[in-house]
């Protein structure tokens, strides 16, 4: 009985840092954001921010954030899946994987500035187009450059989980599918893809959620031609100092993210 109680005590003691962390850095900030969202710009308690969120300006912004985040995730997935598959077939897979991950060690801003140089009117991309006889195009400050750079930044996070789940796939299952007369496409559709769906899901989550609130790239690469919820939050906190409105947008982002997490997780149980 004594030992049992002591065990319980130490267990609680170990739990303490975790709980403290969660309370201080997860629950408290969310509550603060929620609290600030109920104040208008002059510090009066009101629901005006929520009312404002449902005006065409912010709804349009929410829609375009979703649309760009969707495009970024979809394109990342289309490139990442075959790449991850190929990687599992190579001899030194860990080395190849490392080479893909290395760029994510470099600071995001540094990469963005590099792309300003590459995509600029006199940059490398346009000299190449000139060489091909196509002539200079505007690449910087377009939807294309924004999506390209975002995909470039997020793709390691998509490849990694897909690679892991492909790597864990039992090769005897493929042999079995083959023996039973399944074509390559059927094997992929009925065996490989369903078994790696978890990797795809966590890859999509890891890409979609941050893509929804991207903000620096919208100015540096898209020249503020793309306005996302993230841009707007940044502006409300730093420029307008309308913390209430900034918090309200953040509250909606949190709700959207929770919904996405819940939806993708319940499907997992269904499979």
């Amino acid at each position: 009985m004594w030992i049992q109680m002591e065990n319980k005590l130490t267990k609680n003691l170990y739990l303490f840092p975790y709980l403290l962390w969660i309370a201080l850095f997860v629950i408290a900030p969310i509550l603060l954001v929620l609290y600030y969202s109920f104040f208008d710009i002059e510090g009066n308690l009101s629901l005006i921010n929520y009312q404002k969120f449902f005006t065409p300006v912010y709804l349009k912004m929410t829609f375009s954030s979703f649309w760009y985040a969707f495009l970024i995730t979809a394109i990342s997935l289309l490139i990442a899946y075959p790449t991850a598959y190929l990687l599992t077939k190579t001899k030194h897979k860990q080395l190849w994987l490392l080479l893909i991950i290395v760029p994510s060690w470099i600071n995001l801003l540094l990469k963005a500035y590099a792309f300003i140089g590459i995509f600029g009117t006199y940059g490398a991309a346009n000299s190449f187009l000139n060489l091909m006889g196509i002539g200079s195009q505007q690449i910087l400050f377009t939807d294309f450059s924004f999506i390209f750079v975002s995909v470039y930044i997020f793709i390691p996070f998509m490849i990694l989980p897909i690679f892991n789940s492909l790597n864990e796939l039992n090769p005897t299952l493929l042999d079995a599918a083959n023996d039973l007369g399944a074509s390559k496409w059927t094997t992929f559709r009925r065996v490989i893809f369903p078994l790696t769906i978890d990797g795809v899901k966590s890859g999509c989550q890891v890409v979609f959620i941050p893509a929804l609130s991207l903000f620096m790239l919208t100015r540096l690469i898209a020249g503020n031609r793309v306005i996302t919820l993230g841009t707007s939050i940044e502006q409300h906190f730093l420029v307008t100092q309308d913390w209430g409105m900034g918090s309200t947008i953040a509250v909606f982002l949190i709700i959207i993210m929770v919904v996405i997490m819940v939806v993708t997780n319940t499907r997992k149980r269904g499979v």
Binding site: I116, Q138, L140, F141, R219, L220, A222, G223, N224, R225
Partner: peptide, 10 residues
Amino acid sequence: KAIVGDEIKM
């Protein structure tokens, strides 16, 4: 063409 920050100089 774009609405930018300090990069405008460059």
